[in-house]
Simulated assay, not measured.
Amino acid sequence: MIIPWQDIESETLNNLIEAFVLREGTDYGEHERSLAQKVDDVRRQLQSGDVVLVWSELHESINFMPRGQFRADAEEQE
């Protein structure tokens, strides 16, 4: 289920984004990016609609997913 990120308190949303960025452990290549830059990237993707905030009832967890991946996963479950 998609959770409207606009309905989440700013500090809570920021904490969710930080936790996501920190657990991803992604290698950004030649130039390392700061936590603040990574958080801004995720926030920008949320605002543009490229990424959605998803509640998984099965796993009882919140995650960020590319919108297209969420749609594909939802279609597979139907």
Rank of each mutant, 00 (worst) to 15 (best):
Asn15Phe: 05
Asp27Leu: 14
Glu76Ser: 15
Phe70Asp: 02
Ile3Val: 12
Asp50Glu: 10
His31Cys: 07
Leu22Lys: 02
Gln6Ser: 13
Thr12Glu: 01
Asp27Arg: 06
Lys38Asp: 03
Ser34Leu: 05
Asn63Thr: 15
Leu22Trp: 03
Ile62Met: 05
Ala72Tyr: 08
Ile2Pro: 06
Leu53Phe: 07
Gln47Ala: 06
Leu22Gln: 05
Ser56Glu: 08
Val52Tyr: 03
Trp5Ala: 13
Gln69Lys: 07
Leu35His: 07
Glu24Tyr: 05
Gln45Trp: 08
Gln45Val: 10
Gln77Asn: 09
Val51Ala: 04
Glu60Arg: 01
Ser56Trp: 09
Gly49Met: 06
Ser34Phe: 03
Leu46Tyr: 07
Val52Trp: 00
Arg71Cys: 07
Arg71Gly: 05
Asn14Glu: 14
Glu75Arg: 11
Arg23Trp: 01
Glu30Gln: 04
Leu58Val: 13
Gly68Thr: 06
His31Val: 11
Asp73Ile: 07
Asp40Ala: 15
Glu11Thr: 12
Ser61Glu: 12
Glu60Met: 11
Leu58Trp: 13
Val51Cys: 11
Tyr28Pro: 04
Pro66Gln: 06
Phe64Asn: 02
Asn63Gln: 14
Ser56His: 05
Asn15Ile: 09
Val52Asp: 00
His31Asn: 10
Arg23Asn: 02
Asn15His: 09
Ile62Cys: 05
Leu13Phe: 02
His59Ala: 07
Ile8Val: 08
Gln47Arg: 00
Asn15Ser: 00
Tyr28Asp: 13
Glu78Pro: 14
Gln6Pro: 08
Ile8Phe: 06
Leu13Asp: 02
Glu78Ala: 15
Phe20Ala: 15
Asn63Phe: 12
Ser10Lys: 00
Gly49Ile: 09
Met1Asp: 14
Glu24Gln: 09
Arg67Ile: 13
Glu24Ile: 02
Leu35Ser: 01
Ile17Cys: 02
Arg33Gly: 07
Leu16Pro: 01
Glu60Asn: 07
Gln77Ile: 11
Val39Glu: 04
Gly49Ser: 13
Glu18Pro: 04
Leu53Met: 02
Val52Met: 01
Ile3Cys: 09
Asn14Ile: 07
Asp40Leu: 13
Gln37Ala: 14
Gln47Ser: 08
Phe70Thr: 02
Leu35Asp: 03
Ser34Asp: 10
Phe70Ser: 00
Glu57Lys: 01
Leu53Glu: 00
Arg23Gly: 10
Asp40Lys: 14
Ala19Pro: 04
Ser56Met: 07
Leu53Arg: 01
Phe64Lys: 04
Pro4Gln: 05
Glu24Lys: 11
Gly25His: 01
Thr26Ser: 13
Asp41Arg: 15
Gln45Ala: 15
His59Ile: 00
Arg33Asp: 10
Trp55Met: 03
Arg43Lys: 12
Gln45Phe: 14
Ser48Thr: 15
Glu24Arg: 12
Glu75Gly: 08
Ser56Gln: 05
Tyr28Val: 11
Gln6Met: 08
His31Gly: 04
Glu9His: 10
Thr26Gly: 10
Pro4Lys: 03
Asp7Phe: 10
Tyr28Gln: 04
Glu75Met: 12
Ser61Gln: 04
Ile62Arg: 02
Phe70Gln: 01
His59Ser: 10
Phe64Met: 05
Ser34Ala: 10
Arg44Glu: 00
Gln77Asp: 10
Thr12Ser: 06
Gln45Glu: 15
